[in-house]
Design a protein around this nucleic acid. Structure first.
Lengths: 135, 135
DNA sequence: TTAATTGCAAACAATTTGCATAGAA
DNA sequence: TTCTATGCAAATTGTTTGCAATTAA
């Protein structure tokens, strides 16, 4: 089911602004900041406001269409169907390593089974000490 | 090894301000925001500055003495020896449920073994849909 | 003594708000 | 026609910075 369909099904309106923002989230890189998204929106359509971007992202997040994560000190967004992955972030050297989705699928199953909780688990940042910094 | 000892061992100074902040982190609730910490510091000692609180928290975090997490939309801090736990946060109703530490210990072992990464994993927030909101 | 740490005040970034208007359904 | 969504401008929140003065070691 497409984002557009989901939006309408829930009674939300599909405005041009939302359409553009969704386009960007689907077409672009992962890890887009609100600011980058805003700039890309402006490149396509003039006169779109920053608060609209924020409001749209918030709505999409609540619907599960968009995932928000904290990375490199800021918030990043990406659409939720994207290839999931996670990050290991060393709290000492700051280095970030990507991690395949499977590494957490066991956890997902456990949570679903024991808590009835359907975890998104599609963009997690785990801090700790990397091999090098453990010396 | 106490925080004080660790600080000194790394060549950092144990100032009254840092002492008070560490006290608060050890004595108080979990989930303290920078702002709450600041207020509690002021209750004990006058004239402490906000930036000192931020700088101290940043230092403690880099040393692994303090853990920072994002919860309820803001950053919360707590000392790292505290009973670890995690959170399941429903992205629809916003409800937050606590989760015991053990639920992620398997993940920790896997990461250590396969990546050589010593994950802190002591205060994670996992978003998803709770049982009720999955309808 | 002296380099690390602090207070101060100001700057900064990211995000949110209220309200009148525009526009999707 | 109706009520959601937007633009605007301003306010807020959270956090960081440069620099001179202070102070732990």
């Amino acid at each position: 089911m497409s984002c557009n369909t989901i939006l309408k099904a829930k009674g939300y309106r599909l405005t041009p602004q939302r359409r553009v923002i969704l386009d960007i989230l689907h077409g672009g890189d992962a890890h887009l900041t609100a600011d980058i998204i805003y700039e890309q929106v402006r490149d396509k359509v003039a006169g779109v406001n920053r608060s609209t971007v924020y409001r749209t992202l918030e709505l999409m997040e609540s619907l599960g269409l968009v995932v928000k994560a904290e990375l490199h000190g800021t918030h990043v967004y990406h659409h939720s169907e994207e290839g999931h992955h996670h990050h290991l972030k060393c709290r000492q050297c700051g280095r970030v390593v990507e991690l395949p989705e499977e590494s957490m699928s066991l956890l997902r199953e456990t949570l679903l089974e024991k808590q009835g909780f359907a975890a998104d688990l599609n963009h997690h940042v785990i801090t700790g000490l990397c091999r090098e910094c453990r010396e």
